[in-house]
Computed example of a mutant assay.
Amino acid sequence: MQSESEVRSLAPATQGIGNTIRFTGWIAFWLQLGLAVVSGIALLFAATGRGFTDQPNAGLGVGIFWAVCGVLLVLFNVYWDFRYTRIGKRLANPNAAVHPSKADTTKAIRLGIIVSLAGILLTLLGAGATLAVLVAKSISQPPGVAITDPYNIIRALDVFVMLGNVNAITAHFVGTVASLWLLEQVHKH
Rank of each mutant, 00 (worst) to 15 (best):
Q2A: 14
Q2N: 05
A11R: 13
P12L: 04
Q15H: 04
I17W: 08
T20M: 03
I21Q: 00
I21N: 00
I27N: 02
G34P: 07
V38S: 13
I41A: 10
I41Y: 13
L43N: 12
L43V: 07
A47M: 12
T48A: 12
T48G: 09
R50G: 08
T53F: 01
D54Y: 09
N57Q: 05
G59Q: 05
G59L: 08
G63L: 04
V68G: 02
G70D: 05
G70L: 03
V71W: 07
V71A: 13
N77W: 00
F82T: 07
F82N: 07
R86I: 10
R86Y: 04
R90W: 01
R90T: 05
R90C: 03
A92S: 14
S101H: 11
K102I: 11
I109W: 02
R110A: 09
G112W: 02
I113F: 04
I114D: 01
T123H: 03
L124S: 15
L125S: 08
L125R: 09
G126M: 13
G126C: 14
G128D: 06
L131E: 05
A132I: 12
V133L: 05
L134G: 06
I139P: 04
A146D: 07
T148K: 11
T148N: 09
Y151R: 11
M162S: 08
I169E: 07
T170V: 15
G175I: 09
A178D: 00
L180N: 03
L182C: 08
V186H: 02
K188Q: 14
